[in-house]
Design a protein around this nucleic acid. Sequence first.
DNA 1: ATATTTTATTAGGTTAACCTAATCGACAAT
DNA 2: ATTGTCGATTAGGTTAACCTAATAAAATAT
Lengths: 230, 230
Amino acid sequence: MKGITSRVQDYLRVIYELSISGKRVRLVQLSKILGIKMPTAVQMLRSLDNQGLVIYEKHEMIKLTPEGEKVAKEVHNKHNLLLKFLTRYLGVSPKIAEKDACGMEHHLSEETYRRLLKFIEFMEGCPSGLPKWLEGFHYYLTWEKRPTKRVGKDVAILPLKNLNEVEPGEVGKVVVVKVNPDERLKLAEQGILIGSTVKVIEKKEKYIVLNVNGKIVQLDRRKVDSVYVI
Amino acid sequence: MKGITSRVQDYLRVIYELSISGKRVRLVQLSKILGIKMPTAVQMLRSLDNQGLVIYEKHEMIKLTPEGEKVAKEVHNKHNLLLKFLTRYLGVSPKIAEKDACGMEHHLSEETYRRLLKFIEFMEGCPSGLPKWLEGFHYYLTWEKRPTKRVGKDVAILPLKNLNEVEPGEVGKVVVVKVNPDERLKLAEQGILIGSTVKVIEKKEKYIVLNVNGKIVQLDRRKVDSVYVI
DNA sequence: ATATTTTATTAGGTTAACCTAATCGACAAT
DNA sequence: ATTGTCGATTAGGTTAACCTAATAAAATAT
């Protein structure tokens, strides 16, 4: 009955990701991203249309039906969750993590998905900004031995990101603010303090626009340079 | 060139697992375990033989070639690692974890495998027997909120196993010994103390035979009842 | 020794997902 | 208006992995 194979999920996810990034979805792009030839894509698209997952008429743009979008979103979520876990917690490089997530997303049960989600939720909800063991673990990954005492504050082994490197649309959690107390206070007044979650809205050459707990904040990019997120 | 598809890996892993458990490997079992019909298995086996991964002659028992065994072992290791992570850390139920691991094992890159291995190594090498966050996390999974203080000692939310439930051949790490100090001391003299790794060798009705750091120990099963491992 | 059951094999399909080669349609540039 | 290019399509394959139905071989029971 259900023909929602792994591959079908891939197609739907890619269509979804292209469409939410505002681009109109054409066959060429799809086939480029999925690494297949166009005739294959045509066939698949027709089959997806028959299954009621996409709307596809000859020479027209590709759209997801509500049902197709539902499936696509699920896969997309699983993909992102795995990606986050692999890069931020295991410290896998983005490229490899992407490939792994791509393969594993189809085999992540609801149960495991929920638990992995909780795992990340739990770690991100950590009152000290970043769970302690994570530092220790990344020390261990680098030096092949357990940290003897407390890991130093600026041992840069964690896969932290400078807030300036976060792309518009993405979300980060502030874990390090490397700046003098005065500046730190100013940032804190804007809501940028350890543990807070920020979403990047727009990046210009001189300033960056953020959403900090619902409040829109505009900051100098040089100042933002000392803010690290995960 | 390489025809080592996911499915081929599945076949090799199952053959490997059957053969290390001492059973002679026949087609019927293979097809039962893999959920396929026998003619399919025959075809596949012939193809595996051609690729030099197994030795298979008509009506004969199935054996892995050294190369086939190498592949099988790799997959087997990935499978077990995922299984461990899912059950012991995320607390996924064994059945679901098994299915998930089965699907994901083929898509786990070397890099990610190594890091996940390190993760578990790091957590198991924890001097206090069990990382603290894990208790907190499992509390969070159960109650949907962070533990306020220290999680109580016998909040049985962790996926612990009674040592009596560990099957021969399996390994466990002692994390809880629920018994009076006297008995605890006696067990400690045998090497059974928090943090030590034990392998179950044999289980009889009255006693259990363990390998504790290379030493063979025989213990009353009633006493073992108070030992929990992960 | 023969009958029965279990295990394995052949023969002849199907399906999903891919491919190449060739053609078609729409639009832009000359 | 013609030509070229890009994108889409058709036609006609291939391959891996599965299947059913029928048959054969091996093992076991009578």
